[in-house]
């Protein structure tokens, strides 16, 4: 196990990214992604045992450090770094399965038919997404229902800065 030591919130090894920690700009570490954390809250009760309490203490310290850091930074112009997948019967599973490797924005910006979503889900499964075969159809239905061609266009965020043209 190895963590990045230059940040209080190290990003641990994952199935998705087996060898090294993930490069995030300072303060934007993957391990504190909002939706993934939220989705895991219900599961956490089940898994909260003395066996992993050390990890919990570590995380609590990290979390407090984050909270203080955020409060002190006071950057009202900075929005959330992550986005949630929409509510639905497989939101939590989709969050776990898809956002292991990429963020929600990759999904939020798509407008695809059910046939196209089927291809995407099968491709991602081939590429390592841990889709339980029993969940495949529900996942495709969820994505097709929320991100179909008739939905309004995705409105992307901008990075901070002048936002002015180059001259």
């Amino acid at each position: 196990m190895s963590h990045r030591m230059d940040s209080p919130l190290a990003y641990p090894h994952t199935n998705c990214h087996p060898d090294r920690s993930i490069p995030f700009p300072k303060g934007m570490e993957c391990g504190v992604e909002g939706p993934a954390v939220a989705a895991n809250l219900s599961r956490s009760r089940r898994f909260f045992t003395p066996m992993n309490s050390l990890g919990t203490i570590f995380a609590a310290i990290a979390l407090l450090a984050l909270a203080f850091g955020s409060a002190q930074a006071q950057k009202p112009a900075s929005a959330s770094l992550t986005a949630d997948l929409p509510a639905g019967p497989v939101q939590a599973k989709a969050t776990t399965v898809c956002l292991e490797c990429h963020e929600a924005r990759i999904i939020l910006q798509q407008r695809l038919s059910k046939a196209a979503w089927t291809k995407e889900v099968d491709k991602m499964t081939k590429w390592g997404a841990l889709v339980d075969p029993a969940d495949r159809d529900a996942l495709i239905d969820y994505l097709s229902a929320n991100f179909s061609p008739d939905k309004p266009p995705y409105d992307p965020q901008r990075t901070a800065g002048s936002g002015k043209s180059s001259k």
Binding site: V37, N40, R45, F48, N52, G55, T56, A62, L63
Partner: peptide
Amino acid sequence: DFLKHVSAA
């Protein structure tokens, strides 16, 4: 696991 810890925390 880490997320579990963060969540529990």
